[in-house]
Write a protein that binds this DNA or RNA. Structure first.
Lengths: 137, 137
DNA sequence: CTGAATCCCTGCCGATACTG
DNA sequence: CAGTATCGGCAGGGATTCAG
C-alpha cells in the first residue's frame, strides 16, 4: 500500500494537497523539489548515490563547486533528511557524508527526471533533423 | 528499450552526461528541472494534465497567479515542448493551452516527485511523533 | 580538513499599468 | 479575452576571508 505503482496519468486522487491553488511547502511535489532545489544539488546527490564521501572528496569530484555552496547544499540536504553527517573523533577531523534511506529513495526520482529529459532532447534532435533534412531541396 | 525499468540505484550508466562535473543544460536531469523550474510551474502543468484550458480558466483555477508569471510560465513550457498553444480565429480571441505528448510524459515525473515527498513527510511525522511520545515519561 | 561569515551582483517574481 | 511593458524587492549563489 505504501508503494502503489500507478501507471495512470495524474494518479494523485483524493489527497487535498493535490488540489492546492497556491504553491505550498506541504505539497509533496514541492517537498521533493525543495529538497533538490538549487544549482549543484542533483550533482551532489549523484555523487552520494555512488557511495559515501568526505567533504574534500566532494570538492574533488565537483571542482567548480565553491565551499559556500557545498556546505549550503549539505545543510539543505541534511534538513531534508536526504544526507546524514558522520563526524568521526580524532585528528584531523574526519567527516563522512552519506545518503539516508530516504536519500536513496531519490534514485527513482532522478531516474524519472533523466528519462523525461532524454526523450525530450531526442525529440528536439529529430525536430532539428527533420528541419535540416526537410524536403527543401 | 526506450523504457528500461531500472530498480537499481543510479541506473545512468555509460552516457557521458551522467558524469558531468558542472551543471550543464545538456544533462537530461537539468532539462527536466529546467522545464519545471520556477514557482507555479508544476501547478500549471497539473491543471493542464486534467485537460486543456484557456488563459482565463487557468487564471480562475490559480487566482493568486499574476498575468506576468502565467504568461512567463506558458512561454517557458512552450519552449520546453510541454505545452502547445492553439489560437482559434474569430472574435473575441480564443486560445487553448494543451499538453503536448511530451507534456503528458510529465505525469510519471510528477508522480515520482509526489511519491518521494509523501514518504518524506510521513517520515517527518513519525519522527515528530516518536519525539512527542518518546519514552521521556 | 571542515566548514561558517561576509560582500556583492544577478535574476526571479509580484504589482501595476497598458495594448491588440 | 489574452496577453506585454516596466519597475522594485528579495533571495540565490559565487569569490573571498576567517575559524574550529
Amino acid at each position: 500500500m505504501t508503494h502503489r505503482t500507478v501507471g495512470h496519468p495524474a494518479g494523485l486522487p483524493d489527497d487535498p494537497r493535490a488540489n492546492v491553488t497556491v504553491p505550498t511547502p506541504e505539497c509533496p511535489v514541492e517537498i521533493t523539489l525543495a529538497a533538490l532545489h538549487g544549482r549543484w544539488t542533483t550533482l551532489v546527490v549523484r555523487e552520494l548515490l555512488r557511495g559515501d564521501r568526505s567533504y574534500s572528496e566532494l570538492r574533488t569530484a565537483l571542482p567548480m563547486l565553491s565551499d559556500k555552496v557545498l556546505s549550503d547544499r549539505l545543510a539543505q540536504l541534511g534538513e531534508a533528511g536526504v544526507v546524514e553527517r558522520d563526524r568521526r573523533p580524532g585528528w584531523p577531523p574526519r567527516v563522512r557524508y552519506a545518503l539516508t534511506p530516504s536519500g536513496h529513495g531519490l534514485g527513482p526520482v532522478l531516474q524519472a527526471l533523466w528519462d523525461w529529459g532524454t526523450e525530450a532532447s531526442a525529440r528536439d534532435s529529430v525536430a532539428e533533423n527533420s528541419h535540416a533534412t526537410s524536403p527543401l531541396r
